[in-house]
Amino acid sequence: MLTVSHLSKQFNGQPVLRDISLTLAQGEVLAVLGRSGCGKTTLLKILAGIETADAGTLELHGQDLLPAPPNERQMVYLYQEPLLFPHLSVFENVAFGLRIRKVKEAEIKQQVTELLAELELSEHARKSPHQLSGGQRQRVSFGRALIIRPRLLLLDEPFGNLDAQTRAAMQELFGRVSRQHHITSIFVTHDSREALTVGSRLGYLERGSLTSFASVADFVADPRTNIAAELSFWENIRQTANPTSTPA
């Protein structure tokens, strides 16, 4: 469905993205692991159309995307901050994309109400954004993107500012809603555990180069993901704590 070929980008002579190629099928979630400054934000912004590429092509269902302005791509880019519109209520924040498209009032009402219920936000519909908790805000932001039925969802560390518990709940919610709506998405994170939780495909981005993994095992085995080292660390702990390693 989505084909990215040989994408490159430089800022002031410094390469930020080098020859990135990837394909993504309908309903897949590509989780990309990468530290800050690896070029992930630039990659997502080029896909969304708010940044231009120096070279490479971008196709969706065989249609060339590069000439399309961001508002015609139907690809939503979600920031780490939920960036809710402070002058609009929760309901109107979610309804935003439909109002832009001049959808009929009754239709808007029905769609937004359904989506709010699905995201467990019904009771907050009339509230303004500053009255919500961090996790609730992120759900509103998610709903605001989902309502326009994006062809591709681009998530840039969306849960980075949440506490561990809310983060786990959001990962679960994201997985459930993605499957239900067959959302295709690219999910960038620096947390390998989050990548494994949400991703149906896995990648690693480092200094502008993307590595795609054919299987979870390959991802775990790659030393750059640090998962193997992590596993042996916990294994060590377990052995030191229970030297006999016999269950009590």
Partner: peptide, 27 residues
């Protein structure tokens, strides 16, 4: 942040004029 709001509005389907009227000016 103003730039991020503007870009977000664009990816949600706003033309530059709509982003100005519906997001930037109210902000």
């Amino acid at each position: 942040q103003a730039t991020e709001y503007e870009q977000l509005a664009r990816t949600l389907g706003c033309t530059p004029g709509q982003a100005l009227r519906r997001v930037l000016l109210p902000l």
